[in-house]
Design a protein around this nucleic acid. Structure first.
Length: 559
RNA sequence: GGCCCCAUAGCUCAAUGGAUAGAGCUGCGGACUUCUAAGCCGUCGAUGUAGGUUCGAUUCCUACUGGGGCCA
């Protein structure tokens, strides 16, 4: 039984003894460590019903609780909070345990035996990979890793639009400008050119619409351009995934799930789930408090809605999934509400297991991005800028041939931290001029704290000092009192689809470690406490490394 | 026009219905010549407005104001 369970049980027993029924003692960590390691508000909550003063009631509860193994003292504080302080020995034992558990530290079994698919990133071939895709990739990868840490088998999926108007615009642009379709930069430019022509030039619009139809029909004249552009795009994306640390198991394309979706919608039409309206097939979302959306156009082509139904059906046919999670920007919230409502009627088994999670939009200080106007910050350019900064910072350091790979890791860390430091639904304000920081709360700050710890451990090995839990100094550091909470943080982040709980926690322990490091000599052969301090450093390093992994951030050994 | 999301310090973000609302950046002021200064310490500085629920509201509810988004 862990410490929280022991305290809860003791509290429960005390409450029963006092004749207080119907109150479940909520155990939490006080906001401040000065208020103890655990706290409960039962006295505050039960005082009214018991017709007693909260503080007096709290005193009675404390008296009834008695002693708990691992708890040094229990006291009443504030308005009637009951605070629990852990013993020195208990805290020291958690540190030693963490150091021993190592790479397994923080793992849980909540999703053991479950198979979960995460779909994220979803860039479109023929268009640029922009910051929004970085956000989706960052959040999706972290959520996937949180699920893996809870014992799930995770299947990573990427869904990409390789057919449709955006492709036609790009292909038209490539033809007009005589661009090389193997050139990524040219494809991006061609798309911007095609998009603006589509809106301003009726002839161009006609031609692009025509190309769109011919692409669906696999016109042999267009096929070489199409194939080259598609291949170039997808290969470019792979380079980015390698850099970002994602390996997808499945790639789905709109061109393949469209037909599946049409079948589903046609079936639903006969069941009365969908309705015909002016030649198109629509879903009347009003019947469930939403709005109407078109699933099949007048021209009998499937819309994104229908393709989504086909996609989600296909996912469950490919894999025996217990859950399917889709990560997109929150501008698609309305879309998914309607599609999931329709899905609940035509594919109830799939809908019951499908979850949509959204992240906020990247808002540039210069205004909203638009890939149609070419006003975007590409994922690649952002990473490159960050890498340059990192290399500059490392210029004076002797890191040999690792410099490049460390710069990559630092660059990605800076970006991912920025995305994962805040609640996932909120927009991120991004200043492309000021760029991202390597100082203060940042991805590199976490990585740096970790490398420092490793460097301490290397020194300890050189001095031949073995880590040990034996001679822990009498006074406890705040760092020690935070480390054992890691698994709770991980579980909370997983259950609420919020990796930022992990980010916040890691930032906190990194700060505590740095402060402790600045004031304490850790490796000292003449100090009997040194072995314990080395054990604490090791426990910190494991926690940081594992936590960074959950964020999808690499932990370099030196930087 | 309908619906959804957001609003905390000058800026970017935290805060499980609880205790004195925490960080970082910026500004100002320090320490060290010791294991990586991408670091450490100090300091200035905040819950959009008006109600409601609650022993207790940044947190839940209503309205308003201001921003973002989606649909038509």
């Amino acid at each position: 039984m862990d410490i929280a369970a022991r305290i809860t049980a003791a509290l429960q027993k005390a409450l029963t003894g006092l004749g207080i029924e119907g109150v479940t003692p909520a155990l939490e960590h006080p906001t401040e460590l000065a208020h103890g390691d655990f706290a409960t508000n039962v006295a505050l909550a039960a005082a009214k019903a018991a017709k007693k003063n909260p503080k007096a009631l709290a005193e009675e509860v404390v008296a009834a609780v008695g002693t708990i193994d691992g708890v040094e003292k229990v006291e009443v504080a504030g308005l009637g909070f009951i605070n629990f302080y852990l013993t020195r020995a208990f805290v020291a034992s958690t540190v030693v345990d963490i150091a021993a558990i190592g790479s397994e530290w923080g793992k849980g079994g909540l999703l053991a035996g479950k198979r979960v698919m995460y779909e994220y990133t979803d860039p479109n071939p023929f268009k640029v990979f922009h910051i929004g895709h970085l956000m989706s990739n960052t959040l999706g990868e972290s959520l996937a890793r949180l699920a893996e840490y809870s014992g799930a088998v995770v299947v990573r999926a990427n869904y990409q639009g390789d057919i449709g108007p955006h492709v036609a615009k790009c292909v038209w642009g490539v033809m007009q400008k005589q661009f090389d379709p193997n050139d990524i930069a040219a494809l991006g430019e061609a798309y911007v050119y095609g998009s603006s022509a589509y809106e301003s030039d009726p002839t161009a619009k006609q031609e692009i619409d025509d190309i769109n139809k011919r692409l669906y029909a696999k016109d042999p004249e267009l096929q070489p351009i199409y194939d080259a552009g598609r291949k170039a795009s997808l290969e470019h994306f792979e380079e980015l995934y390698a850099l970002l640390g994602t390996k997808f198991n499945h790639y789905f394309f709109e061109s393949e799930v469209g037909p599946v979706g049409i079948e589903v919608v046609k079936e639903g039409l006969t069941q009365g789930v969908f309705e015909e309206s002016d030649g198109a097939v629509v879903y009347k979302g009003e019947k469930v408090g939403l709005h109407t959306r078109v699933f099949i156009t007048k021209a009998q082509t499937p819309t994104y809605e229908t393709k989504e139904l086909g996609l989600d059906k296909t996912k469950f046919e490919k894999e025996k999934l217990d859950r399917s999670v889709i990560v997109t920007a929150n501008e698609q919230d309305g879309f998914f509400k309607v599609v999931l409502a329709a899905m609940a009627e035509v594919l109830p088994d799939v809908a019951a297991k499908t979850v949509h999670i959204s992240h906020g939009m990247m808002v540039l200080t210069t205004g909203k991005m638009s890939s149609r106007k070419g006003d975007v910050v590409t994922g690649e350019s952002l990473i490159n800028d960050m890498r340059e900064q990192a290399l500059e910072k490392m210029a004076s350091r002797d890191l040999g041939d690792q410099k490049e790979s460390i710069a990559d890791a630092v660059a990605v860390a800076a970006i991912k931290f920025e995305v994962l430091k805040q609640g996932s639904g909120k927009n991120i304000v991004f200043d492309p001029v000021q760029s991202l920081s390597f100082e203060g709360d940042s991805g590199p700050y976490l990585q740096y704290a970790h490398t420092r710890a490793l460097s301490i451990l290397a020194k300890a090995r050189a001095e031949r000092i073995q880590p040990s839990g034996a001679m822990a100094p009498e006074s406890m550091t705040d760092l020690e009192r935070m480390l054992y909470r890691f698994p709770e943080v991980v579980q909370r982040a997983m259950e609420s689809y919020e990796p930022h709980y992990v980010t916040t926690y890691l930032t906190q322990i990194a700060g505590l470690y740095n402060a402790w490091y600045a004031t304490t000599t850790i490796v000292d052969p003449t100090d009997p406490h040194s072995p314990y301090r080395i054990a604490l450093t090791e426990a910190f390093a494991h926690t940081m490394r594992n936590g960074l992994w959950l964020l999808g951030i690499k932990a370099p050994e030196r930087m």
